[in-house]
Design a binder for these strands. Structure first.
Lengths: 249, 249
DNA sequence: AATCCTCTTCCACTGAGTGGAAGGTGCCAG
DNA sequence: CTGGCACCTTCCACTCAGTGGAAGAGGATT
């Protein structure tokens, strides 16, 4: 089961990550734990189909076909499309780095991100995952997550900066406040010099995503940012619930 | 060779497309041409790995893992990231639908797209393909494509609207002009009521993409649009060639 | 020219993958 | 309530697709 043909082929694809976007055959085989000769054949098939492409140097990279498939994923097609114009508006009015994220298991998965030419040190990248307890969007998603998820996350509050909240009781208290006030904040809990605000995005009753923003400092403008975020979040919710999601012919 | 385990698994993934973003097992098996029992097992593996996800109804959709992989593809990671801020600027100054596209075989592949809330009838979608001879970005990419590609495309100029250029000689003449003047235009050749302008995006010497724009009419503002496009295209080129592409920590 | 690296091809062996058939579930119509 | 239909799941004996060690080709470095 850990080494059926299929799972091996998938393991080869899984060998790629943010730090390793292009790999040679040997490396690919090593990372996937597959004999070279076997990897050679499988990689060949993946390449022929378009799941992998070759770079000038001969190294393999993820192919366009996978990229195209990815665009069909629900995260992409539903949520992102609905959110896109609102994110732009939001960016236009605030010029801060703007984020859309969903919960994936016990982590935050960044689905969309809009940043200017220069910006605050931001760790996230579209498609990357971060711990929930140290990010604005994470706190929002955690606040509305099922009880069991919350408990499990509280078990393991790893420290990231000096300001990361690592006491379960304190985080729990913050989450209560998030539900009461409708937004979450962080102050240098993920990376120094970066604060964030975030609000939930709903589809009907359920919270399906979080919309957040990273700024160098938020004392001054907090109310303004929160209301901008909430306007955008409502807009997205309305689009999601809206008339069968606008279909592009 | 058309039915190794691997190619069957890939065929299952390939069963999804823009019109069929969620499919039930039976349908999936039928489309991939695989016996139900076999499809059941393969789909199970794909699902366990995260390549497929299940919707509330039980139907399958492309999973987040594939989406994440797609983000690692070179189209996405290099080009799109470099282009993103310039596309926003461009959209901000012109408020027209803006496109970034590359050539994939004999077609145009739309890589990025920025549209306002309301817009001209535009056919493209990110990840979709269109014929090269009837789109602005297509003409640009065709003008700089290898000779053999150009010849093959010229063989088959399918008519789409009444204005589509279908005479090889005439298109060839337009392509010459594209190379001379540095931009391409279309007038309702793909869909009525939509005109477009496009310019090449270079990485060093070679044209790697095209940047385009769709507007209802371009007589008036052509020079302004072309120069806005060229500014953006130069910006992208500079970023691409730039200091080892800005790495996000 | 010797060493080391990665890639490619080959082929005899064998167990992983196959798929028809049977059974389960849930829905709708008569 | 009952039969029919459409979809999903499980089973298991057969066999052919997949395996991977080994050997050879290409290319870079010393």
């Amino acid at each position: 089961m850990g080494d059926s043909v299929t799972s091996r082929a998938l393991a080869l694809l899984g060998a790629f990550d943010g730090e390793n976007r292009s790999l040679c055959l040997t490396e690919l085989a090593r990372r996937a734990g597959i004999p070279l000769a076997t990897a050679h054949r499988l990689v060949g098939e993946l390449h022929r189909w378009g799941a992998l492409a070759r770079e000038p140097g001969g190294d393999y990279v993820i192919g366009r076909r996978i990229w195209q498939l990815g665009l069909l994923a629900p995260v992409q097609s539903g949520l992102t499309q609905a959110a896109s114009p609102f994110l732009h508006d939001l960016y236009g009015t605030t010029l801060a780095t703007v984020h859309l994220a969903v919960r994936d298991g016990l982590e935050v998965l960044y689905v969309e991100r809009l940043a200017g030419h220069v910006s605050v040190p931001v760790v996230s990248r579209v498609g990357s995952r971060l711990p929930m307890h140290a990010t604005g969007v994470g706190k929002v998603l955690l606040a509305y997550a099922p009880e069991e998820v919350r408990l499990e996350v509280l078990q393991n509050l790893t420290r990231i900066t000096a300001y990361t909240v690592t006491q379960p009781a304190r985080l729990l208290d913050q989450l209560r406040r998030v539900r009461a006030e409708g937004y979450a904040t962080t102050g240098e809990e993920m990376s120094l010099g970066a604060c964030s605000v975030a609000v939930p995005v709903r589809n009907g009753e359920t919270v399906v995503a979080a919309l957040g923003m990273v700024v160098p400092d938020l004392r001054r403008q907090l109310p303004r940012l929160v209301s901008a975020l909430q306007v955008a979040a409502h807009g997205i919710s309305r689009t999601l619930a809206g008339p069968a999601s606008v279909e592009w012919k």
